[in-house]
Each structure stands twice: as structure tokens, then as C-alpha cells.
Design a protein around this nucleic acid. Structure first.
Length: 599
RNA sequence: GCGCCCGUAGCUCAGCGGAUAGAGCAGGGGACUUCUAAUCCCAAGGCCGCAGGUUCGAAUCCUGCCGGGCGCACCA
């Protein structure tokens, strides 16, 4: 069983001993408490009790599960809960434990335990976040733009969600292979190249304008293809020439691909996304192995010929007419479609890249396609049972009218335009709030804030649901936005800067303010949150966590002066600032959002 | 017809077996000689689409409806 499938079994209490250089997960207070309750249950012989410790409004934590256990034991829940409370180990962790309601166990921790945890987490490498992904190789497919087409807002989610997952998996010690499966092959290149041959144009130097012209060329070629049968014929011949490897045609195709790739790189740089040329493996890269993919499937009997096409059939996949709908590996005309390409890529990712896990960050509309591809790969043995393949689906972008966002020419919102507007708006706000900032420094800050806002807006909602493209929401700089987190972080850096040296010494004997308690409790769940994010490939949970943390910090900020406080409170509050600041910065980095020291 | 996703405050969304369902935005009222007011506080706002079922306990799990989006043979 791969390491990432093993759920941490917190049945045994293991003292946390950080080894130098070895990143270990610092057990959270919740997991320590869970151990305590389990120990109490064991002492009482209550094997039926599976405690679920979670945060509570009525106490620091509540332990659930007593009600279910009492039901099995046919005993009064409150009696069982009282016994558990009485049997809790006296380890200095729990300050107060009481039975509440029908049989809940409310648990309050001692200030000392909270402060000790704060000190441990500050001292631990990497904020106590371990590397559970060590030894696991993930191949993740995301972004997937098309050559000769501009990237629009529909590409944003795949690119940003994928980038965040890459960062998080790598942070947890995993090896991640990024694959940008670019659409660089197909019949549309025939008309594109033919049009260019018939109407040669000088190549511009700036990437974005080049791309804009290339996209316009695409539209003109398309129009001519539809209107002029003679041109359509020449375009079809051009496709044949391209596939046959005609040098002049291939050279033209390479030019178009190169222009587009430069443009993609430019967009990725603006976005601060870690995708490079090396990660771009276009569909054309698999051309040579497609015949073998087909032959292998056919030899194994997974694929059969139907209506002249090589098809894989599925018991439960049928069309509106009730007839089975196959995955078409090879078309009747002998050509290969994207199913063949995806299968070839999958096989290569497992066999050559040694993937332990395959992720595809792709629009939810491709769900059936991926089901068929994965099923085919399982049947053919290319995808072993030990390797999970997950379609990390996200909802469709809807237009301002609530209708699906159309990608018709002229109707798309260019990603570049969205980013430009975001940065422009951010520049206005930054300049107004911070008049001292000018020139390149202002531009950089505007970029960090503007792009951060767009990314956060896209990452913060759960990825499965459709979402409405709403520039006002994406570009907002107030409320639950990326800026709120950046602002909280900047305030913290400001305090730490004013404090000067390393005064963040924790004194565990001090008494805690409620706002300080709440902050320690929130800070403690960072590592657990990352585990949740990976379990469901859901970066929005990290957004939710960071927003909550920033809110809790702001409450602390309002109630608890740091620099004016006396020792030992001052040292403890500085420690809280430091840990909160580091957690916010690390969390934002994992989302791909910059956390400048000043706004 | 079958399949996938989604119905939670006026709007955009969290919460996905635990006690009285939470944010943000919009609208109403208030707080800047203070560690950054890009902030905070207060009030207001809800048959969690509907109906059954499972459970000590359901917005959360199951079934069936209703409503919306998407997909279902040679485009990707």
C-alpha cells in the first residue's frame, strides 16, 4: 500500500522527539487529546469507543463518540462519559473535562499545555509539518492550453488549482512531475499553416501581441476554411503533409508552436505559476507510439473494431439511442483522436515516469472521458491497482448571465486582460494607501496584490461546483480576499520589525487571554489542514483555514497589544506573531500567492 | 433515455454525522491623537429545493421526486 493511503492511526501515544534534519509531523493538540481519550477508554475496557476530538464552541475541544459507544453497551451515555472523564490521564494537558448535553465530553486545555505547544511548533522545523509524501511520485496534468489560441478565464482554474496542488504535494515531501498537456496537434493546423503560407507575415517580437495576431490568424483561417472550398481542400492536403513530415510544413508548425509557447510562458510568469517549457509535453509528443497503443489494446482484446474504428466498449456507457458508446482509440480513417493520446500519455507516466499517483486537473465535462480512459488503462494492465488515477474535476465557468461561458470568438475574456485589470486596480489601491511607494516597487506590489486577488478568488470556492465569472468579485480587495491575508501578514511583519531582535521567547507559566488561546488553537491545525487538502485535492480548504486564522489573528490584534505588553506576555505575544506570520506566509506560498512584508 | 455535478441569508459561497447552521458582499448603525481602518464592532437577514428513510442525533448518509448545468461514436 502506498504511503499516502495510510491514514495516521493515533492509537498509541508516541512522545514527540524532533530529530535534527528529519522533518516530522508535530502531533496536533487534537490528536494528543484523542490519544488521551483513547487511553482513558482502554483503561475502562471500552473498546467500543472511537473518540472523535474536534474544536467546540462550548470548550476548547469536544470528544464525540461516547453516545455511539453507550448505545452499543446499552448503558446511559452520561454515565459512560463521566467514567471517561474520570479516567483521563493526568498529563497536564487537560484543565477541565466535563460531561455536557446528552453525553458530550467537553475538554479545556491548560494554558501551560497551549503555550508548550506554541513553543514546540515554533521550534519545530517547517512549523511541525512533516513529509508524509516522501517516496510518492505524483504526475499531475494541468493548464492544458491550446496552441494558436489565447488563454481565457476558463484556463485559470486548471492552472491555479494544479499549481497549488503541486506546491502542497512538494511541500509534504512528494516528488511531483508537472505535465502541461498542450493541444498542439490536429486538423486545425492544416488551415492555419496553409493560411500562413498563402499570407506570410513578419513575426513580431513581443509575445502577447504575437499571440493576439496568431489567434486572429486562426479566426481568419477558420472563416476562410468554411467559406472557400478550394482553401479547405488545400488545408486538408496540408494536414496530410504535416502528418507525413513534409519539412516546410513541419517548420511552419514548429514556428506556430514556438510562438504560442513563448506566450504561455509569459502568462505563467505573470501568474507566478511554476510551469516551464520543460513541463510542456504536447499531444504531438505521443504520435510515434499511438500505433503501438492501438496494437496493444487490440492484441489484448480490450479494443475491438466497430464500424471501421478501433473501440473500447463499456457495459454501462450508452448513448441516447441506447447503443453502447465506445472510447474511440483509432478513427475509421486511421487517424488517432485524443483518447489515444491520453492513453499513450498515461502509459508513459506509469511505466517511464514511475508515477504512484496520476492527477488530471481538468474541467468536469471530461468526466466520462476520463472514466473510460482509466477503465481502459486498468483493463489493459497499464494502470496497476496500486496506482490511483484521479480526475480532479472542476466546475464550468459561467458567464455573467449565468449561462455557460461560451468560447466563441469575441465572446471570451482573455486571461491576460483579466490579469492586467487586476494589477491596474491593485496599483490604484496600493498607491492610495501607500503614497510613498512608486516606480518598480509599486508595480511589483500591485502585481502581488492583483494576481493574489484573482488566484484567491478562484481557489477559495470548492472546485466541483460551477462558478460565475464575476470580475467584481475576482478583483475585490476587501473582505474574504487574498489581500485580507496579505494585510494580516504585513501587520505581523510590521510588529516583528519594530520589535527588533529575537524576543519571541515563550514563557509557559503565563496566563492566556481568550484571544491568545483561540490563536494557538487555530495555529495548531495547519499541518492537519494540509493533510485534508491532499486527501481530497481541495485547495479551498487551505483558503478557508488561512482566512479563519487571519480573522483570529485580527481579533488578537484588536485585543492584545504586543509591543506595549510587559514580559512575559510580550515574549509570548511576539511568539504568536511570529508563528502566525510564518504560517500565513507558508500557507499563501502553497497557494501560489505572494506574501510581501509590507502592503 | 442513461450518467456526472450542483440547489444553504437578497447576492457569492463555507460547513458534508454532533449541541443554537457560519463567512464575505450589498443595505442599516457605530469605531481611526493606538503595533498599518485594505480593519474592527453592533443590529438585521434561513421550512439548508421537496418528501420519505437510516441514526441517540441529518444541511451532512440512503432512496424517490422537483429545479439548474453538463456529458453520452470517430472535435479536443
Amino acid at each position: 500500500m502506498p504511503a499516502f493511503l495510510v491514514r495516521p492511526a493515533s492509537l498509541v501515544t508516541i512522545p514527540f522527539i524532533p530529530l535534527p534534519g528529519v522533518p516530522v509531523t508535530l502531533p496536533s493538540l487534537a490528536s494528543s487529546l484523542s490519544d488521551s481519550v483513547t487511553a482513558a477508554a482502554a483503561r475502562l475496557g471500552l473498546s467500543e469507543l472511537a473518540p472523535q476530538v474536534r474544536r467546540s464552541e462550548h470548550a476548547d475541544f469536544q470528544a464525540d463518540g461516547v453516545l455511539a459507544a453507550a448505545r452499543i453497551l446499552r448503558r446511559r451515555p452520561r454515565d459512560v462519559a463521566a467514567e471517561v472523564v474520570a479516567a483521563l490521564p493526568a498529563d497536564g494537558l487537560v484543565a477541565a473535562a466535563e460531561v455536557a448535553g446528552p453525553g458530550f465530553v467537553n475538554l479545556d486545555l491548560t494554558d501551560r499545555a497551549l503555550l508548550a505547544q506554541l513553543a514546540d511548533r515554533l521550534a519545530a522545523p517547517r512549523l511541525g509539518v512533516g513529509t508524509p509524501e516522501t517516496g510518492v511520485t505524483t504526475v499531475i496534468d494541468y493548464s492544458q492550453p491550446n496552441i494558436a489560441k489565447e488563454m481565457h478565464v476558463g484556463h485559470l482554474r486548471s492552472t491555479i488549482v494544479g499549481d497549488a496542488l503541486v506546491r502542497i504535494l512538494e511541500h509534504l515531501g512528494g516528488a511531483v512531475v508537472r505535465r502541461n498537456h498542450i493541444g498542439d496537434w490536429g486538423t486545425q493546423f492544416g488551415m492555419l499553416i496553409q493560411h500562413r503560407v498563402e499570407h506570410p507575415e513578419p513575426v513580431d517580437t513581443t509575445d502577447v501581441t504575437t499571440m493576439r495576431r496568431l489567434a486572429a490568424l486562426y479566426r481568419r483561417a477558420r472563416a476562410k476554411f468554411d467559406a472557400d472550398p478550394g482553401f479547405a481542400d488545400r488545408a486538408r492536403q496540408r494536414v496530410v503533409a504535416l502528418q507525413a513530415g513534409d519539412p516546410q510544413t513541419v517548420a511552419a508548425w514548429r514556428d506556430i508552436v514556438a510562438e504560442s509557447t513563448r506566450y504561455f510562458t509569459d502568462v505563467y510568469d505573470r501568474l507566478g505559476v511554476r510551469l516551464t517549457d520543460a513541463d510542456a509535453v504536447g499531444e504531438s509528443a505521443y504520435n510515434a507510439v499511438l500505433p503501438d497503443v492501438a496494437a496493444d489494446l487490440e492484441r489484448q482484446g480490450v479494443a475491438v473494431t466497430s464500424d471501421g474504428a478501433l473501440c473500447v466498449f463499456f457495459d454501462d456507457v450508452r448513448g441516447p439511442d441506447g447503443e453502447p458508446t465506445p472510447l474511440i482509440v483509432r478513427k475509421r480513417d486511421g487517424g488517432f483522436g485524443y483518447a489515444a493520446t491520453d492513453l499513450a500519455a498515461l502509459r508513459q507516466r506509469v511505466t517511464e515516469l514511475r508515477a504512484d499517483r496520476l492527477l488530471y486537473v481538468v474541467d468536469a465535462r471530461q468526466a466520462l472521458h476520463f472514466r473510460m480512459v482509466f477503465d481502459t488503462a486498468r483493463r489493459s494492465g497499464w494502470l496497476p491497482p496500486t496506482v490511483p488515477a484521479v480526475h480532479v474535476a472542476f466546475g464550468t465557468v459561467l458567464g455573467p448571465d449565468g449561462r455557460p461561458f461560451k468560447t466563441r470568438a469575441g465572446d471570451t475574456v482573455r486571461l491576460v486582460d483579466l490579469l492586467t485589470e487586476a494589477v491596474d486596480r491593485a496599483r490604484d489601491v496600493v498607491a492610495a494607501k501607500n503614497p510613498g511607494l512608486t516606480g518598480a516597487a509599486l508595480d511589483e506590489r500591485a502585481r502581488q496584490v492583483g494576481v493574489g486577488a484573482v488566484k484567491y478568488a478562484d481557489l477559495a470556492t470548492s472546485r466541483t461546483r460551477d462558478y460565475t465569472y464575476d470580475p467584481q468579485r475576482m478583483l475585490a480587495l476587501a473582505g474574504n480576499t487574498g489581500v485580507y491575508l496579505q494585510y494580516a501578514h504585513a501587520r505581523i511583519r510590521s510588529i516583528l520589525g519594530r520589535a527588533g531582535g529575537a524576543e519571541a521567547a515563550v514563557d509557559p507559566t503565563a496566563a492566556l487571554d481568550p484571544a491568545e488561546r483561540a490563536l494557538i488553537l487555530d495555529l495548531d491545525t495547519f499541518a492537519d489542514t494540509l493533510t485534508e487538502v491532499v486527501a481530497g485535492y481541495e485547495p479551498h480548504r487551505l483558503c478557508g483555514y488561512l482566512y479563519r486564522l487571519a480573522q483570529t489573528f485580527t481579533t488578537f490584534y484588536e485585543h492584545c497589544p504586543v509591543l506595549r505588553a510587559e514580559a512575559p506576555t510580550r515574549g509570548n505575544r511576539l511568539a504568536l506573531c511570529r508563528l502566525t506570520g510564518d504560517t500565513l506566509r507558508t500557507g499563501l506560498e502553497l497557494l501560489g500567492i505572494d506574501a510581501p512584508d509590507q502592503l
